[in-house]
Design a protein around this nucleic acid. Structure first.
Lengths: 206, 206
DNA sequence: AAGCGTTTTAAACATACGTTTGGCTGGCAC
DNA sequence: GTGCCAGCCAAACGTATGTTTAAAACGCTT
């Protein structure tokens, strides 16, 4: 057929390595080696390393945003939802239901963290262009739940939450290490994310 | 003389460039060129690029942490403080009083964001070792203001706040761009950080 | 089985990087 | 003035990177 699973193998390897080491620190040789494909395959199938980075995000984000958008449209037609429902939905959709999904979600949040702190301008522009609509729909529904908060302020607060979530999930490993060292408590990743939801809800309310 | 200002010039240039482009993406050639010094000066004065990264953090963090620690000790002897005072103090100390300090603080928060999302393990270990004590002192005072919150939970919430702050301040530029584009409001950086404080306080309370 | 477009491969290419080298410079002690 | 040594400099070194090339292998149609 027209395409083997080479493309998927590359994306799988790149996703993990980018999350572990960052974009610049991950070489195409490391990716292709882990994927078990030839070095030239990346440039053949994707065109460039930059395009590969975008492809990694696209493969993860497109299904997620489609699912989220569908759910949000349902809520819109149902006449809205409350704060907990809204963030609970986003959280469930982002973190998944079973362990495998959660692990992949964590990988992706590490990626998101890198995308934000590193100056991947092309990526930021790409994300904004492709997934801005879903974000605005979410913001609209959110506004109905706290109508007393001005839109711009609400936008900022959502951004604050995003920061807390991305920062937390992308640094999960060291958080657990510190918890064990300083508090002698073997906390699970699930428990940490669980603590995140009320924090976020409270923060939005202000 | 025993030392010209070469060291400071390198640190100044490195600080800005690392914040703009990230550690891996910033070459020593770019740094020395911007600083107007010879390429070999970095390895001569600092030993390696890694050591330069640490030095950049140290120059900023050591005075800040000393000042913070002193203020915290004062508060301890005064019998504690409330939540707003505590975070207000940290905020004032971190963001400075006048515009120049605020600008430099923003640069540093971008650095902090990079340090967290990129796998600079040596840096994380270094920061933890050198500045962990101040952080624990802050956590102790904080605990007295919300004694009903268990220590580990409090630690997590502080970490959430840290995420919101770093994420926000390191992405300040794009935040202002979005604000102008989507809301047609020309928001200042000061106003954004101002919104941050109540969010943080509310989040800690839960 | 022959032909053809697609995919894979090994090898090379050009470039950029961090680091090291060996010599030059200038000011201070004697 | 002489010797000295920290600081500076241009140049080179070895290596790793993203990308390109040209040929080989493959799979499908005819």
């Amino acid at each position: 057929m027209s395409q083997s699973d080479t493309v998927e193998r590359i994306l799988d390897a790149a996703e993990v390595l980018f999350a572990q080491k960052g974009f610049a620190e991950t070489s195409l040789r490391a990716i292709t080696s882990k994927a078990g494909v030839n070095l030239a395959a990346v440039n053949y199938h994707f065109g460039s390393k930059e395009a590969l980075i975008q492809a990694v995000f696209e493969r993860y984000l497109t299904p997620f945003c489609q699912a989220l958008d569908a759910k949000l449209q349902e809520l819109e037609q149902a006449g809205g939802a409350d704060l907990e429902k809204l963030f609970g939905l986003a959280s469930r959709l982002a973190l998944g239901s079973h362990g495998d999904e959660a692990r992949r979600a964590m990988i992706f949040f590490r990626l998101a963290g890198q995308a934000y702190s590193q100056p991947q301008d092309h990526l930021r522009a790409y994300l904004r262009e492709h997934y801005g609509a879903v974000f605005r729909r979410f913001l609209g529904l959110l506004h109905d739940t706290v109508p007393d908060v001005p839109p711009l302020e609400l936008f900022l607060r959502v951004h604050f939450c995003l920061g807390a979530v991305i920062f937390t999930l992308s640094g999960m490993e060291s958080l657990r290490t510190i918890s064990k060292k300083d508090f002698n408590i073997d906390i699970t990743a699930a428990r940490i994310t669980q603590q995140l939801l009320p924090f976020v809800v409270g923060g939005i309310r202000g």
